[in-house]
């Protein structure tokens, strides 16, 4: 299995909505809104990199998401 930490930046009015959208991923291990340069931190567990790519693509396509940064485990 492959773990990843996805950092998400959203427009302020979409933090709560994006949070609940992200909670729908079955690969989700943990997610919480944060202070600092990012707005949401999501921990995912996937079987392969391709699955991670799909997840980040879906998150980037969500309304109000400005950017994401994926930190994939070695």
């Amino acid at each position: 299995m492959l773990n990843a930490c996805i950092l998400v930046k959203t427009i302020p009015t979409r933090i709560v909505a994006t949070l609940s959208d992200i909670k729908r991923f079955k690969q989700l291990r943990k997610v919480y809104p944060v202070y600092g340069r990012w707005d949401i931190v999501a921990f995912m567990e996937v079987s392969e990199y391709r699955e991670l790519k799909e997840i980040t693509a879906q998150i980037n396509a969500m309304k109000g998401v400005r950017s994401t940064e994926t930190l994939a485990s070695l």
């Binding site: 773990n3 990843a4 930490c5 291990r29 943990k30 921990f43 940064e69 994926t70 930190l71 994939a72 485990s73 070695l74």
Partner: peptide, 16 residues
């Protein structure tokens, strides 16, 4: 520490 992992990208280690 709840979880820790070495990662690729702009950081080397992420700790929850």
């Amino acid at each position: 520490t709840k979880s820790v992992m070495a990662v690729l990208g702009r950081y080397d280690v992420v700790v929850d």
